[in-house]
């Protein structure tokens, strides 16, 4: 078995007096798709932001190793340069930047046009468009996924990539995830889509800031569906 690309050991994240994540243990191996499921507010996006190094999301305990290195010691841009890419859950508008500019930023490995086609957006129409509020939420999420594809990452963190996507485009987005794997990436897939989660290699359920179940995706999803509660910190989800 390959050694983990990413390994979190007893990771805790706190903001002021609030504990967002506690004792997180998670390993993702190269080329593996790992689904993360959990209720709203359970800590999924916090984990994504911790991995990317977003401001205010520092580990207060535990370690995160990425390719053997201490990930938490690296600034965000260095993490990106080492192959971590994220599709944000709530992408921002960047006035004055075109989609071509955005997809051309950083150590790109795939042409922007190819990546847009992979998520079902016509390059001729979208490349010159501004990355501003004229784009719908669904369009913006597809562009986020295209942005991840363009970087050819070793670890892709996808935070609800299918939220707000229209039904006709959903198969394309779902197909882009295994395409990342085929290109050599491991994927941490945060999702509320049951079918998407079931297609992963492994899955974990997070609840109240703690991972309460990991393993075969079908089993994790079934457990989540039948035992989830949003305020169960220390309750039966942790049995």
């Amino acid at each position: 078995m390959k050694p983990p690309l990413l390994e979190l050991s007893d990771v805790t994240v706190e903001t002021g007096s609030h504990r967002l994540l506690e004792g997180i243990n998670l390993a993702i191996r190269p080329g593996e798709i790992h689904a993360l499921v959990g209720a709203n507010g359970s800590g999924k996006t916090t984990l994504a932001r911790l991995l990317m190094g977003a401001e205010g999301y520092r580990g207060s305990a535990g370690t995160v190793r990425y390719e053997g290195a201490d990930l938490l010691a690296l600034p965000m841009h260095e993490r990106a340069r080492r192959g971590i890419a994220i599709a944000w859950q709530e992408p921002v508008a960047l006035e004055g930047l075109s989609i071509a500019d955005y997809l051309g930023c950083g150590p790109v490995k795939q042409p922007a046009a190819v990546c847009l086609e992979q998520v079902g957006l016509d390059p001729a129409e979208y490349l010159p468009r501004a990355l501003d509020l004229s784009l719908s939420g669904g369009e913006r999420r597809r562009i986020e996924l295209a942005a991840v594809l363009s970087l050819g990452p070793r670890l892709a963190v996808l935070d609800e990539p299918t939220a707000g996507i229209d039904l006709s485009s959903l198969p394309l987005i779902e197909a882009a995830i295994p395409a990342l794997r085929r290109a050599g990436a491991a994927v941490l897939l945060i999702t509320h889509e049951e079918t998407l989660a079931r297609q992963a290699d492994l899955a974990s359920q997070i609840c109240g800031g703690r991972i309460v179940c990991s393993g075969e995706p079908g089993r994790v999803v079934e457990r989540y569906k039948h035992r989830v509660c949003s305020t169960c910190y220390g309750g039966r989800c942790h049995d």
Partner: peptide, 21 residues
């Protein structure tokens, strides 16, 4: 953060945002 997550150093990201605006 959106630009730094694409590998741009903080100063380069700030320049890109300002010049974009």
């Amino acid at each position: 953060e959106t630009l730094m997550a694409r590998g741009l150093a903080p100063d380069d990201a700030v320049d890109r945002i300002v010049l974009g605006m």
